[in-house]
Nucleic acid binder design. Structure first.
Lengths: 387, 387
DNA sequence: CTGAAAGCGCTAACAC
DNA sequence: GTGTTAGCGCTTTCAG
């Protein structure tokens, strides 16, 4: 409701363009032009040393228009006068306006943010997953916040709470090796936040999961060792709490059985995945009276520990000890002899998981059948005698 | 203003405890107890399939008290009746209340969040910095959001904008190798968001910086090569855009000069840090007619590329080629021969940077003298003839 | 010790 | 096409 400052009436007012950034009006009654200067709120005082951050209101005031118009101009939002829009965007630039996502999220109750929880990111595996996942999320217009649980359940719970408090729209999770209670995941369910598990999945939660075909990878790896002539093959397995450990263990055992070899409990050791834990397993296996002639390890870092210890003990690889790892870590091709390993489509794992997550954010419930990505055996020097 | 439902008066009302989670009142006039059930807003309907997320208002309604009281009860906020507080916290648990950080941040204009920008995190360096920095931030009560610029200026700018839009309270930055314009950093300055640069610092911005003593590390490394008997030492340097490249280059050159060796421009090559780029440098140096007898590399990944190529060409390390890297990557101790390198206090770098950042968030401007952390030369097999 | 009310920055009907 | 209004969920004076 614009009132003419001269004739004080309100019905015969027209807009007449924008001059020096201010909306200009024309009163048809008294035939005069005017701009309105006194706004509801005074311009912010420069009190104290706190920097004032430009808001949509500042732009509105500077232009003598309403906040809604500014909001619309900034968002390609339906009908908006081209001149107004230009005035607004120019003024926004001039005042260095940055939208406040917190406020936007609050009113829209959508934060446009997705959380990713990784147990660690010192080895190449999880960073690579993150890169793949982020790529997909960014393309879909989501921001990503990365949390590392550091293999600690307590931290994982804290991570979930932070993500929840920040009202993320979905979470990608790979559990810690010590996660055996799942209330924090249920908490996400309760809040209606979709989850997708990848790599280290939680059986108890009904949601999409993306895995590598661990069983098949392990089966191929073990079969390869057998075909290469090894007869007494040990396995350093992962923590029993992780399903992937069991899948790889089963692949190993089935390969032995299928080839007529017996499964010896004494040759199956579980590491907690820490360097120390793995070293102990290696030590135990390598100092047996009836030493295994090959070891299939749950992952490459473990295989590398085995190789280092074997070297230290003067055990020749592969002549006296065949070694195979899992994951095709960059280290595997650097170490000597180079390490035979099972490669996984790591970035793809991230991409697939993120795609599923975004689908469940958008369409509600998704197919909950776990998705398995295939592995590839990469044969290198650690498992094959030079010919 | 509580009105008695029986006698309809308003002055003689007393609170009389909380029963079944509801505030109970007593009217002295008609001597009757009552609770008030009709609240300003009706309880949220379970419309559609959108999950309702418990708010402070839900708790207030359930207990027939005001939102302010709930807020206070939830925050140890001054005077609050112990019974009320218990009722509130119990009800909060019962309704699975999770505070909305977006709303809190909005009203407090403090997000309690700090951003960390890393150029990449596939090698161990940046993840380790992040772990150190996160540790300090968490202790100080800040959340951390990690952004990876993937060595792309465009992504770096996008990262800054996301952090800005999310109103982070401070940012830890290590630039991409291609960052040569700095408007996005100025944008942070303008918004009053403190920054601290680490490792790859920006000269143009006046703020705290944390670095490793690159010059000294390079000087020690080069001096070591000279003392080990190498005479014709090349250097694969980093991108000129990064100050650390120049610092390491200067350390290399000064060490040569100080030991009476001449600096040969032809033996100084710049890599862009990509595997491909480094390979080209290595190829060039290793196929010179007058091949250098040692190479000091700007970092370990580069040194490892050199070693791999040398092996491929049948050049013996260290007999025919001494190699020294920088950063003590885990790979350095795995490769054979093991790689001599300059180790940096990486996690400490992160911790120090985060401490400085938190200080500038809390106290405003900080000391802006760059801080240098010391390095240590780790001598391994790649630079020392077996005796 | 507690309630009412204002407002953080922004969007989204609803009017005109 | 644009202004008005009413919140999003929460904290924080200001009164009692």
């Amino acid at each position: 409701m614009i009132r003419c400052p001269k004739c004080n009436q309100v019905h015969a007012i027209n807009r007449s363009g924008i001059v020096r950034g201010m909306q200009r009006y024309f009163c048809k009654d008294c035939a005069s032009y005017f701009t309105i200067t006194n706004n509801t709120k005074p311009a912010p005082e420069v009190t104290g040393n706190k920097k004032h951050i430009t808001t949509i209101g500042d732009i509105a005031r500077a232009l003598n228009i309403s906040k809604s118009t500014v909001s619309r101009a900034l968002h390609e939002h339906g009908d908006i006068n081209a001149a107004t829009k230009k005035a607004v965007t120019d003024m926004a630039r001039k005042l260095h306006y940055t939208p406040n996502l917190l406020a936007q999220s609050l009113v829209k109750s959508r934060s446009n943010t997705i959380g990713i929880i990784v147990p660690e990111f010192l080895t190449y595996f999880f960073p690579t997953v993150i890169i793949g996942a982020t790529e997909v999320a960014t393309k879909a217009g989501f921001n990503v916040v990365i949390c590392q649980s550091q293999e600690s359940l307590k931290t994982e719970i804290a991570n979930v709470n932070v993500l929840l408090a920040n009202r993320v729209e979905g979470v990608l999770i790979s559990m810690t090796k010590e996660t055996k209670t799942f209330d924090h995941f249920r908490s996400l369910e309760r809040h209606g936040v979709p989850m997708v598990f990848y790599n280290r999945v939680c059986e108890e939660i009904d949601c999409p999961k993306v895995l590598v075909n661990d069983y098949d990878g392990a089966f191929k790896a073990t079969t390869h060792l057998i075909q290469a002539g090894f007869m007494n093959i040990a396995h350093i397995a992962g923590p029993v709490s992780l399903r992937l450990s069991n899948n790889r263990l089963n692949g190993y055992m089935d390969a032995l059985k299928k080839n007529g070899l017996s499964v010896k409990k004494s040759l199956i050791l579980h590491t907690d995945l820490s360097t120390e834990g793995t070293k102990q397993c290696a030590e135990k296996l390598l100092s047996m009276k009836n030493r295994p002639d090959a070891i299939f390890c749950v992952n490459d870092p473990a295989a590398i520990q085995v190789m280092l210890m074997a070297k230290q003990k003067g055990i020749k690889i592969p002549e006296e000890l065949g070694v195979v790892g899992f994951s095709n870590d960059p280290m595997a091709s650097i170490i000597e002899p180079s390490l035979t390993t099972v490669s996984q489509p790591v970035a793809d794992l991230g991409r697939t998981a993120m795609r599923l997550l975004i689908a469940s954010i958008k369409n509600g419930t998704e197919s909950k059948e776990p998705i398995y990505l295939e592995t590839e055996l990469i044969i290198r020097a650690s498992s094959v005698m030079a010919t």
